[in-house]
Amino acid sequence: MTAYFIRRSATLIAVSLTAVTIVFLLMRLIPGDPVQIYLGPDASLEEIEQAREHLGLHRPIYWQYFRFMVNATRGDLGRSIISRRPVSSEIARTFKNTLVLAATAIAVAVLSGVVTGVLAAVKHHSPFDLASMVVAVLGIATPPFFLGLLLMYVFSITLRWLPSSGTGSLAHIVLPSVALGTPSVAVIARQTRSAMLEILFCDYVRTARAKGLPERVVIFKHALRNALIPVVTVIGLRFAYMVAGAVFTETVFRWPGMGRMLVDSVRERDYPLVQGIVLVAAVCFAAINMVIDIFYVWLDPRIRARSARAEG
């Protein structure tokens, strides 16, 4: 298991570096110039040239790449071209906000998703099953910004129960986390239901039932744990999706997170900031994937056996 962990950590680094390299090249391939954005449409050609030189953007790409990589290994991700603030502090601030939002949203989604999924599976083909799935699907089917604007309208303008947007108090996180979590409720509920249904028909669950174990024990102890394998995958994927896809929620609810910053920085061609965000995002996503894989091994004895064999 330790060897497995070390090997996965090594690949995590390799994967992240590959991703950053690709981004580095892609960003310089697409049209647009950060200096022009930073200096505005009124800037003169001379002004732009001077700034490019100052930022080292006139140098060949391999030189810029090499410098970026060398500095990155020393923990220096450079400064944003637009705001001139250090990339690391920009990321630290927004990443924290995004994590808080995504964690709250995933908690909302997992709680309601798993419960709905389990109940729907147990009451397979009942009106509850149908109703919960329809509601869940409505959740996926609504465009994210649409849901956000709707929530604000009802809870901030009409009812005045909750602040519409921004940060500051616990109440501020309610609307954005519901907006961000809702589409995932459906995905998680569906996956839980499918997996539970599959398991509930398995022999060992029938055996457990035949032994006369209470239904609750059968469901939660025997069925759910095994049903969780695909569900964990989905939760992990949804979490990664939220961290990356929070941009709509962050825009509508003006949540100062990393998704919005990434989109802004790509549009402003703020190379150092884009590279920094991708590096951090890559490490995080790779880490999430690793955790999912380790979960697999832990949950499924068959895989555990195989990976032990592979190690040996």
Partner: peptide, 13 residues
Amino acid sequence: RAMDVLMVFPPIL
């Protein structure tokens, strides 16, 4: 690993 690289790319980017 190729999939990992693809996955760690923020989809919006």
